[in-house]
């Protein structure tokens, strides 16, 4: 049969899994194509959309490199959060739009992941107003954080700073990445989709793979609290 694979075919098919090719790809091909066909790092966070349900249960994936990445520095971050539990709950309840929020230490990064309803700027601004002091305590421990604290006096800069550290969310539909990179209506190459993703990840090492999966989409915190009869 003419499409029977030869030894050469099999060799080439196995090539991508070889150390040599991986080395060439990482050190030559990716830098070469990144320079040759540069892609803009896409902005972080969710994008507003016409559909109301798109604007509920947004994900924030904040990665903040600690100034002091030693166990002592990481313990300081843990303490800054542990000492502010009252503040956090009071903020959470009065801002009223947060489904979940959690802090995670990953290597030298303090990460804050949350699910919130509505617009990002409003969400952060409301927290600045209610628990700005907690933000100040945390951001003081983060690289490049000093320029935006106290956050109450740098509201706009602080929101932009957080936004810049909120991970880019790769489109949920794979091919939408092509459209994000190429504004023209056509002229894509579907087979270059992997390269588009690789170059975006080259520009944007940490990303959120899609905008998340939801068990009860399209409902706000307050709607759920109201339905459950626990007040909002």
């Amino acid at each position: 049969m003419e499409s029977e694979a030869t030894w050469f075919d099999r060799l080439v098919d196995a090539l991508p899994n070889t150390r040599l090719f991986q080395f060439i790809a990482e050190w030559i091909l990716v830098p070469y194509w990144a320079a040759r066909t540069p892609v803009k790092p896409q902005p972080g966070g969710p994008r507003m959309a016409p559909q109301p349900s798109e604007n509920l249960q947004h994900m924030m994936n904040l990665i903040m490199p600690l100034k002091d990445k030693s166990p002592i520095g990481r313990a300081k971050a843990a303490l800054a959060i542990a000492q502010n539990v009252d503040e956090i709950y009071a903020g959470l309840n009065n801002v009223g739009t947060v489904h979940f929020a959690r802090f995670v230490l990953v290597d030298g990064n303090l990460c804050m992941f949350s699910v919130y309803d509505g617009d990002f700027s409003n969400y952060i601004r409301d927290f600045i107003a209610t628990i700005g002091s907690v933000f100040n305590a945390i951001v003081a421990l983060i690289e490049d954080g000093d320029a935006v604290i106290p956050c109450e006096h740098h509201v706009e800069a602080f929101i932009d700073w957080v936004h810049a550290r909120d991970l880019y969310q790769v489109p949920d539909l794979a091919t939408d990445l092509l459209a994000q990179h190429n504004a023209a209506a056509s002229g894509d190459d579907l087979r270059l989709l992997p390269r588009d993703l690789i170059l975006q990840l080259h520009a944007n090492p940490n990303v959120s793979l899609g905008s998340g999966y939801r068990g009860y989409p399209a409902f706000s915190v307050a709607q759920i609290r109201q339905k459950l009869g626990v007040g909002w």
Partner: peptide, 10 residues
């Protein structure tokens, strides 16, 4: 969106 009150959200 109507985020301010669960009765109008959405």
């Amino acid at each position: 969106l109507g985020l301010q009150d669960p009765q109008i959200t959405g």
